[in-house]
């Protein structure tokens, strides 16, 4: 599989743009879909919120002719046009749908034995319910299945499919500190040595805000948080440095089962 970076792809607008400027939101997202369509490539994102945003924009585009015309008129300034054919995927779905469990299992060279993992799904990869077909977001076990394939041991805890609070954190951190604090504490109480998330926004709160969470709750957490591609990469034999694992606020401790880790 080869990745082609869409150089001029923009931010999808998170939650803010769609709330206050819907036509701007649709145009920005459909533009990204149009860039992929122009190269006849499926679109892959590594972020839950981006995934939902492009999915929502695509759904609105194909169901509303007037909107589609308006958006394409705005895109025509730079010679772009969308016809609704781009396939949208997320890194987690790509692992299952394009690589496949068997192929992934075959490629695991460093099973992460002994690593107990708390999977943190985040919201926008499983909700709203109609987008992905889960009756209840909690019947999603994709990350736990993946953890088993990678040789680690998934644990059950109360925060799995809860919200990290990212989308209010820029103007008021308190909600995210409280919510994420509960989730990390639950993961720790249930024996997790690390948490893994398929969403970089969740990661920002869980890792980047963890010292403030500890201060807020008065509880020492020290829970390393991995991006999903990092967990997969470690099992596939990449080094922590290649994967940027050393860039996290909460250090990821060396694993005895991984030879290439520095002492």
């Amino acid at each position: 599989m080869e990745l082609v970076q869409l150089e001029s792809a923009t931010c999808t607008g998170a939650r803010e743009l769609r709330a206050i400027d819907s036509i701007g939101f649709y145009t920005l997202n459909v533009r990204i879909l149009a860039l992929a369509e122009k190269q006849q490539l499926p679109l892959l994102t590594i972020c839950n919120t981006c995934t939902l945003n492009v999915l929502d924009a695509h759904a609105a585009f194909v169901s509303d002719n007037a909107l589609a015309r308006d958006v394409n008129a705005r895109l025509s300034v730079e010679g772009l046009s969308y016809s609704g054919r781009t396939r949208i995927s997320h890194f987690l779905w790509m692992l299952y749908e394009d690589i496949g469990e068997d192929e992934l299992r075959r490629r695991v060279v460093q099973p992460l034995a002994g690593l107990t993992v708390a999977a943190f799904y985040g919201c926008h990869i499983t909700r709203p319910p109609s987008r992905y077909g889960f009756v209840d977001s909690r019947n999603n076990i994709a990350l736990e299945k993946l953890a088993v394939i990678l040789g680690c041991e998934p644990i059950d805890y109360s925060g799995r499919t809860e919200c990290c609070g990212f989308h209010t954190a820029a103007h008021d951190e308190r909600i995210s500190l409280k919510l994420s604090g509960q989730h990390i504490a639950s993961a720790k109480a249930n024996g997790a040595k690390t948490m893994v998330t398929p969403c970089p926004l969740c990661h920002t709160i869980l890792d980047g805000f963890q010292r403030e969470i500890e201060k807020d709750s008065g509880v020492d957490l020290n829970m390393p948080i991995l991006h999903l591609p990092q967990l997969v990469g470690l099992a596939l034999g990449m080094t922590p440095e290649e994967l940027g694992v050393d860039q996290h606020i909460i250090p990821f401790p060396p694993l005895p089962s991984i030879k290439t880790l520095p002492a």
Binding site: R15, C123, R127, P128, P129, E162, C163, F166, H167, T168
Partner: peptide, 25 residues
């Protein structure tokens, strides 16, 4: 603006209202 956009409300709404995208936003 304290809504975190988690869609938990939409998930459980028995009336199927798109609470986040068609009401709160």
């Amino acid at each position: 603006f304290n809504c975190v956009s988690c869609y938990k409300c939409e998930e459980v709404c028995p009336a199927g209202i798109p609470i986040v995208s068609q009401v709160i936003e």
